[in-house]
Design a protein around this nucleic acid. Structure first.
Lengths: 147, 147
DNA sequence: CAGGATGGACAAGCGGGCTGACTATATGGT
DNA sequence: ACCATATAGTCAGCCCGCTTGTCCATCCTG
C-alpha cells in the first residue's frame, strides 16, 4: 500500500476523467453540445423528485445564485421550464422539457457506453467485483460537479 | 447493463469526488491549504523528469499562459523556483523546493489515506480486484485537472 | 400575529482560464 | 553563414462560472 496508494488514486482519477470526457463526447455526438457536466448533475436532481433551484444548489454544492444562473442557461436552451409551485408561492418548480428528457436519456446512454467499454476490457467476474466495490465505497459520498 | 451503466458511472464519480476531497482535506490538515488539485497534477509532472512551464501546460491540457499563472502562484508560495536551463536560453526549469517536495509527499499520504479507507471497507480480494481493474482500464486515459 | 427561516433575484467582484500579440532564443534548410 | 520557422516565455485584455452581500416576498412556528 505504501506505493500503490497513489497509483490506485491516479487510476481512479484517470477512470473518472475517461467517464466525464466520454459522456461529454457522447452527448455532443447525439446533438447536445451545449451542456456541461454540472448540467448533467442538475438534470439528475430534477428528473428525480420535484426540485427547485435551491434544491439544485444544495445538490451540486454551489450557491443558489450560481444554481440560478445554471438553471437560466438550461431554461434558455429549452431543457427546462420554471413552473409556479402550487404549494409554495415563493418557489418555482423546475420541470424537464421533452428536450431535457431526451438529453438525460442521451447522457445515460453515453455513460453506459463508457462503462460498456470497461466491461469489455475485463473478465466478467472482475468487472462485477469492481462495480460492486465501487458501489459499496461510493454510498457515503456526495457527487461534486467540479474539483 | 441497461440499468447499472448509469449507476456504475455515478459510483465512479462519487469515488473520484471522495478522493479529490480527501486529498484536499488531508493536505489542508497537514498545513498545505493554498494548493488546488490542479497544482497537484503540476507537481506530479515537475517531480518527474525536468519540466518547463510549457511542459506543465501540455501535461495539464491548458494554455501556457494559464500554466505560467499557476506556476507563478506556486513560486510565490515557495513551492517552486525557476532556474535557467543551461541547454536552452529561452527555457526556465521548474525545480521543487523543500516545501514543494514536502507538499508532494503530503499529497501522496493523503491519497493513500483515502485508498486505505476504501480497502478497509472491502474484503481483501475484492479490493485487489478493484484496484487491478481500475489500473487496467485507466492505462489509456489522461489525467485531467478539471471537468 | 410577530419573528425567524427560506426561495429567489439583483449587483459587484474575483479567479482561472482563454485568445492575441510580442520578444528572445533555437533549429533546420538552402 | 543566413534566413525562415518553431518554440519558451511574457504582457494585455477578455469571458465565464462562481462567489459574497443585500434585498424582497412568502412560508412556518411560537
Amino acid at each position: 500500500m505504501s506505493v500503490d496508494g497513489p497509483v490506485t488514486a491516479a487510476a481512479v482519477l484517470r477512470v473518472a476523467t475517461q467517464l466525464v470526457d466520454g459522456i461529454q463526447e457522447g452527448l455532443a455526438r447525439r446533438g447536445f453540445d451545449d451542456v456541461r457536466p454540472a448540467h448533467g448533475f442538475a438534470f439528475a436532481r430534477i428528473s428525480g423528485t420535484q426540485a427547485t433551484t435551491a434544491d439544485v444548489a444544495a445538490h451540486l454544492g454551489i450557491t443558489k445564485q450560481a444554481a440560478a444562473q445554471l438553471v437560466d442557461h438550461l431554461v434558455g436552451r429549452g431543457y427546462l421550464t420554471r413552473e409556479a409551485d402550487p404549494r409554495d408561492g415563493r418557489a418555482k418548480l423546475l420541470v424537464l422539457t421533452k428536450r431535457g428528457r431526451a438529453c438525460t436519456t442521451a447522457a445515460e446512454q453515453a455513460a453506459t457506453d463508457v462503462v460498456q467499454r470497461w466491461k469489455a476490457q475485463l473478465p466478467a467476474h472482475q468487472f462485477a467485483e469492481m462495480r460492486d466495490a465501487l458501489n459499496q465505497i461510493a454510498v457515503t459520498g456526495r457527487l461534486r460537479p467540479a474539483w
